[in-house]
């Protein structure tokens, strides 16, 4: 039986205008499909296209050619608002109106969305340590992020787009955020795309990691799959030549990542090099692919 994909991106091309005559191509014929109820980590270096992809899905950026479908229905920048009842996001705190209070924001969102989880709202308010009657400008960036997290989670979305949602929040806030996120996913089968650089923190959270590089999807794997497929080889001094099976290097650790550990081991023994083997962390995989 075929699973209905929650999001399908097909042949997406998107370019930013640097000026009237020059363009920077971000995506060229980019495709991706996501299953419902899963958490996806969208990873890549700065400028890889993570934010652009999320903005295209929300209809904030025009793209041509290409098609984005939500549950099989085609979205266009002009009609995306119809789908945004079910797609929410955590934007940058700079987008908020500074003199509007957190309470007023919650009321405005509650009126705008068809569904609203009052229980979750109460839970988020309870775990926060600031006054929601204060205007946004009186809140710290971390506290603003908490308001934005509440605004994204409470409308009971089917697809949640998180672009650096944890920003400068403290560990306690992050802990509660993960907890709330997991409960939302478990209760409502929400699909989550989380673009973040705090990759070690989300290592146990996501089902699949999507690695973007220069607007291309270069790898798509689950954490367990990554750890069983790849092996980290650590050296006293990194070899100057490329080793068999090597797919990337971690310069700081003096290590390489191999997709074929047996071949790599044999090659290293032939060359008479000393090494240690380790299971790679997601950060190791990220560095090697980046």
């Amino acid at each position: 039986m075929n699973t209905q994909m929650i999001l399908e991106v097909e042949g997406l091309s998107q370019a930013y205008s640097r000026n009237i005559f020059r363009k920077t191509q971000v995506f060229d014929d980019f495709s991706l499909s996501l299953e419902p109820g899963k958490i996806y980590a969208l990873l890549g270096r700065n400028g890889a296209g993570k934010t652009t992809l999320l903005n295209c899905v929300q209809g904030l950026l025009a793209y041509k050619p290409g098609e984005i479908r939500f549950k099989g229905e085609t979205m266009r920048p002009g009609n995306t608002h119809r789908f945004l009842q079910k797609i929410t996001s955590v934007p940058s705190p700079t987008e908020m109106f500074p003199t509007v209070t957190a309470d007023q924001y919650m009321n405005f969102y509650q009126k705008t969305y068809d569904n609203w989880d009052t229980e979750l709202e109460a839970r988020i308010r309870k775990t926060s340590d600031f006054d929601w009657a204060k205007p946004i400008k009186a809140l710290s960036t971390g506290q603003r992020m908490q308001v934005l997290q509440a605004l994204a989670l409470c409308p009971e979305p089917e697809l949640l787009l998180l672009d650096e949602p944890l920003g400068v929040t403290d560990p306690v806030v992050r802990k509660y955020f993960y907890k709330n996120l997991l409960s939302v996913v478990a209760e409502r089968e929400t699909t989550v795309i989380i673009a973040t650089h705090l990759i070690n923190e989300i290592a146990n959270l996501f089902d699949e990691a999507l690695f973007l590089k220069n607007g291309r999807l270069i790898m798509r794997k689950g954490m367990a799959e990554m750890q069983s497929n790849y092996q980290k080889f650590i050296f006293d001094r990194l070899p100057d030549v490329k080793i068999e099976g090597e797919i990337g290097r971690m310069i700081g650790d003096g290590a390489i990542l191999s997709e074929n550990p047996e071949k790599t081991e044999l090659d290293l023994q032939t060359r008479g090099l000393n090494f240690k083997q380790e299971t790679p962390s997601i950060e190791d995989v990220f560095e090697s692919f980046a």
């Binding site: 929300q58 608002h81 945004l84 009842q85 996001s89 934007p91 700079t94 987008e95 705008t112």
Partner: peptide, 15 residues
């Protein structure tokens, strides 16, 4: 300033 109010475009409201 700098994208202030852009969040409105992320809501289910027509342009």
């Amino acid at each position: 300033k700098n994208g202030e109010g852009k969040f409105l475009s992320r809501l289910p409201l027509s342009r």
